[in-house]
């Protein structure tokens, strides 16, 4: 039972740099060009789950990304983890698509690849973070889909058993392939790439697809045609006075106790006395 698996992999601006994001005061657009891209962390769990399934049942793993053309490094990393083939959907006409339009484009690409048994995504991305694309993709493909999957087991004859997270617990499901799943981060631990994997990655099949390659309605994609439209942007000022407090460990611990009390927390605490009074040089 060899399975054909598509894993959606999104290159995103590296969250470590989000503090540097600014808004151009004139054009009111987001300044993020200088920020390097990484594979969306949740998507590595999607790749890992596909690799585990392939190791058990055999098959082929195809990664699918939609991004500007300069993300080859991220795609090579997915291939180096062990994916077999990669597609990059890249076209100016795709730019600015909301989740409705993005899921529509991804679905058309998956239809073009054809014969898919399983689509795996992460639950959320680090940049937009809407968590909406996985479910919307499943809808476009007209296959059953579940979000926040914490356990996925393939039984015989493509019958699958799943667990999804809910508040304070989980739900259990049965389904038949084909289906689409968005995997939670706790489902697995993504593997690291190896030198061998990196060397192999560059020789693996990689194809770019543009608008002309897909059977898309141009009036439903991109920034202008997306159902949701962006209005005003605001940068949040999160800063506080940030008074730096230095002192001995005893003074710092006492500071915490005193401020818990000042903050209205009922605290029964013994005073913290320096055990080595007179010997330390703390001021």
């Amino acid at each position: 039972m060899a399975l054909k698996i598509v894993v959606c992999v999104k290159p995103i601006p590296d969250p470590a740099y989000y503090k540097d994001i600014t808004i151009d005061p004139v054009t009111k657009t987001i300044q993020r060009e200088a920020i390097p891209t990484i594979i969306n962390p949740a998507d590595k769990h999607a790749i890992e789950e596909a690799l585990k399934i392939k190791e058990k049942f055999g098959g082929k793993i195809i990664t699918l990304s939609m991004a500007p053309p300069n993300v080859i490094k991220n795609i090579h990393e997915a291939l180096a983890m062990g994916a077999d083939e990669a597609y990059l959907l890249t076209d100016k006409k795709f730019a600015g698509s909301d989740t409705w339009a993005t899921s529509y484009i991804l679905a058309k690409a998956i239809e073009k690849i054809g014969g898919i048994d399983l689509v795996i995504t992460g639950t959320e991305t680090g940049d937009g973070g809407t968590s909406q694309v996985p479910s919307q993709l499943g809808e476009w493909l007209k296959i059953p889909h579940l979000w926040n999957v914490i356990e996925f087991k393939i039984k015989n004859e493509k019958e699958v058993y799943l667990k999804t997270k809910i508040e304070n617990g989980f739900m259990e499901w049965k389904c038949k392939l084909p289906m689409a799943i968005a995997v939670s981060r706790e489902i697995n631990t993504p593997r690291y790439t190896t030198i061998m994997g990196v060397m192999k990655a560059k020789k693996k099949p990689f194809q770019k697809l543009t608008f002309d390659d897909l059977n898309l309605d141009e009036k439903r994609i991109g920034l202008v045609n997306s159902p949701t439209q962006a209005g005003n942007l605001h940068l949040l000022d999160l800063s506080r006075k940030g008074k730096i407090i230095k002192g001995s460990k005893e003074e710092l611990a006492q500071f915490i106790i005193d401020n818990l009390k000042a903050g209205g927390i009922s605290v029964e605490a013994d005073p913290i006395i320096c055990s080595c009074e007179g010997e330390t040089g703390n001021e």
Binding site: R240, G242, K243, I245, K249, I256
Partner: peptide, 27 residues
């Protein structure tokens, strides 16, 4: 540490020393 910019008070210290003291003080 970046967190100090988003705090009212930023305490510069080793938490491995401070946590045991808090434990002791709170009994």
């Amino acid at each position: 540490a970046e967190i100090f910019n988003f705090s009212d008070f930023g305490l510069v210290g080793d938490i491995k020393e401070i946590l045991p003291l808090l434990m002791q003080s709170l009994g």
